Amino acid sequence: MCSKDKSLHIDVVDVGAVVAPSDTTILSALEAANVNIHYHCREGFCGACRTKLLQGEVEYITDPLAFIDDDEILPCCCVAKSALKIKVPL
Results as ranks from 00 to 15, higher is better:
M1A: 08
M1L: 00
C2I: 13
S3L: 12
S3Y: 10
K4E: 05
K6N: 02
S7I: 01
S7F: 02
L8K: 14
L8P: 00
L8F: 03
I10W: 05
I10T: 05
I10A: 07
D11T: 06
D11S: 03
V13S: 10
V13M: 11
D14G: 02
V15N: 04
V15P: 03
G16Y: 07
A17E: 13
V19D: 09
A20D: 00
A20Q: 05
P21H: 07
P21N: 08
S22W: 00
S22I: 00
T25N: 14
T25H: 06
T25Y: 02
L27S: 04
A29C: 08
A29M: 09
A29P: 00
E31Q: 15
E31P: 00
A32N: 14
A32E: 15
A33P: 06
A33H: 12
A33C: 08
N34K: 13
N34S: 15
V35W: 13
V35E: 11
N36Q: 13
N36R: 10
N36Y: 14
I37S: 09
Y39V: 04
Y39C: 10
Y39M: 00
H40N: 10
H40G: 11
C41E: 06
C41G: 12
R42H: 09
E43F: 01
E43V: 08
G44D: 10
F45E: 15
C46M: 07
G47C: 09
A48H: 11
C49V: 02
C49G: 03
R50D: 10
R50G: 02
L53F: 01
L53Q: 04
L53K: 02
L53C: 02
L54H: 04
Q55L: 14
Q55S: 14
Q55G: 08
E57P: 00
V58A: 03
E59R: 05
E59W: 01
I61C: 06
I61S: 06
I61V: 13
P64I: 06
L65K: 11
A66I: 05
A66H: 06
F67P: 01
F67R: 06
F67G: 07
I68E: 04
I68N: 09
D71P: 01
E72K: 01
I73G: 00
I73T: 10
P75Q: 14
C76R: 14
C78P: 00
V79E: 05
A80Y: 08
A80P: 04
A80L: 09
A80F: 04
A80E: 11
A80S: 12
A80K: 11
K81H: 05
L84G: 02
L84A: 08
K85L: 12
K85N: 08
I86L: 10
I86V: 15
K87W: 02
K87L: 09
P89V: 12
P89N: 15
P89W: 09
L90V: 04
